[in-house]
Write a protein that binds this DNA or RNA. Structure first.
Length: 297
DNA sequence: ACCCAGGCGGGCG
DNA sequence: CGCCCGCATGGG
């Protein structure tokens, strides 16, 4: 049974939870407009508005696309939500212990997303030494200030500004959007990604090469590059280790002992192999939610 | 008031 | 190399 199926008006999904996916702090989740009650989802992809209805269950759901350009929109949905991934197989491989089994049970159907490389780069430059709520606020302000107004099928929205469109933004502008000390990184990244590096030409490159290229951008280090490789290029070999992932790994697998990032990386690679990216997402979210609810591991 | 947040670059030993 | 420090800013 194929993980997804294209229908004339949309896409049928299997083992997919839209709410968990959109709540899990990935780039798309910063600007997608989802109403679970009304079963509507709309988001901007490039200069188009993807306006859909989503209904059904985790076991079997259905996107119904409104407006024109249905074929392209179907393709965007399949790629963006990684609907071709065989989640049962991935789950069977990342459920190596009770913690991971709990994570999978609690967030069953949560997907990684694949986002525009530039949008992902900007989001994760903003993310450094920051918190999810403020990251979202800053990104939204940048979109509102520098995105271009687009409308389609009676609906209007602002597109995510390209690096070229952001050449007009000053460091002061980024500060006013709440970027703080990251403003200078955003400014130079917009310039660098417009004039010196084409992020879209890295698409077919391997994980190592993509990461190495990304780290040429000022303000992009090991962790941010891993986030972009994973969520901007779909490289499942990436395993970004932020404070939550580090703390969770240490608590669950090392009795709370402090471990080096490099060591934890090797641990993850050995334990979850080529599904590391998914393991990271479930571990990140489970660890973060548990701590926020003050549940002991 | 104090602490923390999906880290990074720079400086020092 | 590895380690340590400062960093803007808002929310708990």
């Amino acid at each position: 049974m194929s993980p997804y199926k294209l229908t004339p008006s949309g896409v049928e999904t299997r083992l997919f939870d839209l709410r968990h996916t959109l709540e899990s702090a990935q780039p798309l989740t910063f600007f997608a407009d989802y109403h679970e009650r009304k079963e509507t989802l709309s988001y901007v992809a490039g200069k188009r508005i993807i306006d859909t209805r989503f209904s059904g269950t985790v076991a079997r759901g259905r996107f119904t696309i409104k407006g024109g350009g249905i074929a392209a929109k179907k393709r965007d949905i399949v790629r963006r939500f990684r609907l071709a991934d065989d989640m049962e197989k991935i789950y069977s491989r990342i459920q190596t212990d009770k913690f991971m089994a709990d994570a999978v049970r609690n967030y069953r159907g949560m997907r990684l997303t694949i986002n525009d490389p530039w949008e992902t780069t900007l989001c994760y430059i903003v993310s450094q030494y920051n918190n999810v709520k403020k990251i979202r606020g800053t990104v939204l302000k940048i979109i509102n200030r520098f995105g271009t107004e687009i409308s389609e099928g009676g609906r209007s929205a602002r597109s995510f500004p390209t690096s070229e469109e952001l050449l007009a933004a000053t460091e002061k502008d980024f500060r006013e959007c709440g970027a703080g000390f990251r403003a200078k990184y955003l400014k130079s990244a917009a310039d660098f990604c417009t004039n010196n590096m084409n992020l879209y030409k890295l698409q077919d490159r391997g994980y190592d090469e993509i990461k190495e290229s990304l780290m040429e951008i000022d303000g992009v280090g090991d962790k941010v590059a891993d986030c972009i490789a994973l969520l901007g290029y779909g490289k499942l070999e990436a395993f970004p280790i932020d404070v939550w992932v580090k703390r969770t790994l240490e608590r669950v697998y090392f009795k709370g002992r402090d471990k080096k990032i490099k060591y934890l990386h090797k641990f993850a690679e050995h334990r979850w192999g080529n599904d590391m990216g998914y393991a990271q997402q479930y571990l990140f979210w489970q660890g973060r939610q548990m701590e926020k609810k003050d549940v002991r591991l």
